[in-house]
Design a protein around this nucleic acid. Structure first.
Length: 410
DNA sequence: AAAAAAC
């Protein structure tokens, strides 16, 4: 499809889409929008950074009744993090330009009174995180009788064990004959099967086929000893000179630790984000990154999904991700909308299996990278042995305490 | 055993 004009959109929406800078619909947009406009339930899988947010926002905005006709929310979009809620709302806002549209973000860590006021004054579209949306449902401040569409963005995450009970309660509170849209870059078969129990004869759209990761992202790995990771990272940043980079760690503490170490060298150009920080600080750091005032962001998986910053040139998995799908999402923070990106993964001895399963998942081999001075112990030994086999043998014997202490036998 | 998500 060459143009948004081929989609059955109102003139005012066409104008808004054009003004927002969209020209040609991406595959997921071309496939999903017609079904959504027809009121169908949809399960949609499409690679990271290919425009899923606009794909569900456009048909929703197109079909919203005006605030005069309906004061209560008509559509609810649920996402896994607070920052993603802000981002999705901002994008919907951008696409709604030209038509006054009341969009409320209902997420935690934010002023409750403001949210109550917005709901009271009339809201057409709600974007929120599970806990706070559920809270508003309990309080009776979020009325669902006029909700005709529910979207689960990052649907596989929303339906995993940590979120599922809350999601199920939210869905149960919405009208049965509503439309349900599920989207993610990763939708394993088990999640698809589970999803169908919340949906009515869903259309399945698969824009990935066998290619999970975006092909404009170069994916590399280093084998490295745990203790050498920080030094390798510093050398890598010097070699690569990223425009901007996100460096993922496994834990919140590890994120703080690495941030402190990098700050010695990079100072204010380096920031950190994780779920133990105050929401104000999280927002401040992410805004700095968006404004280009931050070169490096050390982070947990709180920014592993959805966050869209086109100037992120590099991803570093300082710690390997928890599972293959998390890998796909982290790496997808670069290479947005056809741009180039590079992703590095640090693999310590014993994590070889994880690397293999990632490669199987994305159906592609990662390129092995090397940095001078960071050879593995085995490589060092091999290199030295190749250069000078005899002296090395001698050296090892004299350095070995067992050999030294024990009297030699003939 | 991790991270995220309500006060």
């Amino acid at each position: 499809m060459d143009s948004f004009d081929e989609l059955d959109l109102s003139p005012i929406m066409r104008r808004a889409v054009k003004d927002a800078g969209f020209t040609t619909p991406s595959p997921i947009q071309a496939a999903l929008i017609p079904h959504a406009l027809n009121g169908k339930d949809v399960i949609g899988q499409a690679r990271t950074g290919t425009g899923k947010t606009a794909a569900f926002s456009i048909p929703i905005l197109e079909q919203l009744d005006s605030l005069e006709d309906c004061r209560d929310p008509q559509a609810i979009v649920i996402v896994p993090t607070r920052e993603l809620a802000d981002q999705v709302a901002a994008e919907a806002e951008r696409l709604a330009r030209g038509v006054p549209t009341e969009i409320a973000v209902l997420s935690g860590g934010k002023n409750m009174n403001r949210q109550l006021r917005q709901l009271e004054n009339g809201t057409q579209l709600v974007v929120g995180t599970p806990g706070r949306v559920h809270d508003h449902l309990q309080r009776g401040t979020l009325r669902t009788n006029n909700v005709w569409c529910v979207v689960l963005d990052e649907a596989d995450r929303m339906l995993d064990i940590g979120f599922r009970p809350q999601i199920e309660r939210i869905m149960r509170k919405c009208p049965r004959n509503r439309q349900t849209l599920l989207l993610s870059a990763t939708l394993p078969p088990v999640v698809r099967r589970l999803a169908e129990s919340y949906m009515h004869e869903p259309v399945v759209i698969d824009c990935c086929r066998d290619e999970m990761a975006v092909d404009t992202i170069e994916q590399r790995y280093f084998t490295i000893a745990q203790d050498d990771k920080v030094k390798l990272l510093e050398s890598l940043l010097k070699r690569e000179k990223p425009e901007q980079a996100i460096i993922f760690c496994r834990t919140k503490r590890g994120t703080d630790r690495l941030h402190r170490k990098l700050s010695h060298e990079y100072g204010g150009a380096c920031g950190a984000i994780h779920g133990d920080l105050q929401q104000r600080e999280r927002d401040r750091v992410l805004q700095k990154l968006r404004d280009g005032n931050l070169k490096f962001l050390v982070a947990t998986d709180v920014v592993g999904r959805g966050i869209d910053i086109s100037t992120i040139s590099h991803i570093v998995n300082f710690d390997v991700p928890q599972d293959c799908d998390d890998y796909v999402h982290r790496v997808g923070r670069t290479g947005r909308m056809g741009r180039d990106g590079v992703a590095y993964t640090f693999v310590v001895p014993g994590e070889g299996d994880i690397l293999t399963s990632i490669e199987q998942r994305i159906n592609k081999l990662l390129i092995r990278d090397k940095m001078e001075g960071f050879e593995s112990p085995a490589e060092k030994a091999a290199a030295v042995a190749a250069a000078a086999p005899e002296p090395e043998k001698e050296l090892r014997r004299t350095l070995n305490p067992m050999t030294r202490k024990r009297p030699r036998r003939r």
